[in-house]
């Protein structure tokens, strides 16, 4: 495992921020770290980035206990723009590169590469304060990946971005991931999770409540829902009692199957009575639905 979090607990005064959290992250994948506000995501990220120390538990990075030397292999981009407003873009990137232990020449080489890639050459001498939110996010993103980290932690990277800039950042994340970077992606926006992440870790009230592949989790929480399309209008009365009608249109129907019948049996029955079926597909729950369902379940 590339990152192994073992039984991490952290208490702040009266609040238990993390309670015995364990999970593991495989190298080269994109993970979504999900959870409502106060779930403990930021505390967890701060423990991985060594801003905080856990009260108990251990973190292993690439097989070794997490140490200071690993910080140079981690890139973290917080939701809020962490930029010096009065600094010029070039100076800012140079400063961050120096803090990442690059020599002046190495820093220049990397900065040149990324400013060309993100097409921001003309902004190099502009102050951060003069840039739009999208532009600032691009600068922030470059500052985060300048040192080509093995683990990239992104907190709401698309927040406040227009669709074009979102795509630019998204493509960059995929490219980094294709080149071997593991990504831990903290977000509330579930549409991004489904699109980007292969795996998720769901947290609530300082605890991990769910972990696994997106497809497996969807299967785990599926409700036996199917949509069947017909070539002409149909009558509801033709369906057997084991089937619960969820939604009905002129030429389609959404049904929930009981445990006494499966989709093959149902389709056979429908075909036998001559129903003109043109399409069938299973409706899996979205990550958003699973998220809401799980969080509500715990809070109840």
């Amino acid at each position: 495992m590339f990152l192994q979090v073992n039984n991490i607990s952290k208490q702040f005064e009266d609040k238990q921020a993390l309670a015995d959290v364990s999970f593991s992250i495989e190298a080269g994948k994109i993970y979504g770290l999900l959870g409502p506000n106060g779930a403990g995501k930021t505390t967890l990220i701060r423990i991985i980035t060594q801003i905080f120390y856990p009260d108990s538990g251990t973190v292993f990075f690439d097989g070794e206990p997490l140490l200071n030397k690993h910080l140079n292999q981690i890139g973290y981009m917080p939701e809020e723009r962490g930029l010096y407003k009065k600094m010029k873009v070039g100076e800012h990137l140079q400063y961050f590169a120096q803090l990442r232990n690059f020599s002046k020449n190495e820093a220049k080489e990397r900065i040149d590469f990324y400013i060309k890639k993100f097409e921001i050459e003309s902004w190099l001498n502009k102050e951060i304060v003069d840039l739009s939110k999208g532009m600032q996010q691009k600068v922030q993103f470059i500052a985060t990946i300048l040192h080509r980290p093995k683990l990239l932690i992104l907190d709401e990277p698309f927040s406040g971005l227009d669709p074009i800039n979102s795509e630019v950042i998204k493509d960059a994340i995929f490219e980094l991931n294709n080149n071997g970077t593991t990504v831990l992606f903290s977000t509330h926006r579930m549409e991004n999770v489904e699109e980007i992440c292969s795996d998720i870790i769901l947290m609530n009230q300082g605890k991990k409540i769910l972990e696994g592949k997106v497809s497996d989790i969807k299967q785990q929480f599926k409700n036996n829902l199917y949509r069947i399309n017909f070539s002409k209008a149909i009558e509801v009365s033709i369906f057997p009692v084991d089937v619960e009608i969820q939604e009905k249109g002129l030429d389609f129907i959404v049904i929930k199957l009981s445990e006494h019948i499966n989709i093959t049996q149902l389709l056979k029955k429908l075909i036998d009575i001559g129903m003109p079926i043109v399409g069938v597909h299973e409706i899996l729950p979205s990550i958003h639905q699973i998220f809401i369902q799980q969080v509500n379940k715990i809070e109840k």
Partner: peptide, 14 residues
């Protein structure tokens, strides 16, 4: 207030 500290703290000890 600009939250830049959150980035800096991952690179340098406070």
């Amino acid at each position: 207030t600009t939250r830049i500290i959150e980035v800096l703290a991952t690179m340098v000890k406070p």
